[in-house]
């Protein structure tokens, strides 16, 4: 975990670190990773990972449309929209 790694994961996370907190956060991350490195010691051969404590299977729903048009409610909560769309700065593809 160095500054370069931090800047890569920061970009993946769409975060920028300013000069004041960059060093501190890099140092914190280093320590946290060192701390979680304790896990190395555990013998996990043939142990199935546990993604959710409920070892159950999912309930599903039948294929029915239940949603109503709530366009106005949603668009008015958006930082920027017109009467039909959410708006973001032009994306060039």
């Amino acid at each position: 975990m160095d500054k370069k790694t931090v800047s890569t994961i920061a970009y993946l996370s769409r975060l920028s670190l300013n000069e004041e907190n960059e060093d501190k956060i890099t140092e914190d991350l280093k320590n946290i990773i060192k701390f979680v490195d304790q896990l190395d010691g555990a013998d996990t051969n043939n142990i199935e990972p546990l993604a959710n404590p409920l070892e159950k299977t999912a309930k599903t729903r039948t294929d029915n449309v239940t949603a109503k048009n709530r366009k106005e409610v949603f668009l008015e909560r958006s930082p920027k929209s017109n009467e039909d769309y959410f708006l973001v700065p032009r994306v060039v593809e």
Binding site: D63, N64, V65, T66, A67, R70, K71, F86
Partner: peptide
């Protein structure tokens, strides 16, 4: 008829953002 994880409609050609669930 509905989406993979919501009760929103999948029909094509509707007015923008009208087939959107929470």
């Amino acid at each position: 008829d509905s989406k993979l994880f919501s009760g929103g409609s999948t029909s094509f050609g509707a007015e923008p953002n009208t087939h959107v669930d929470l």
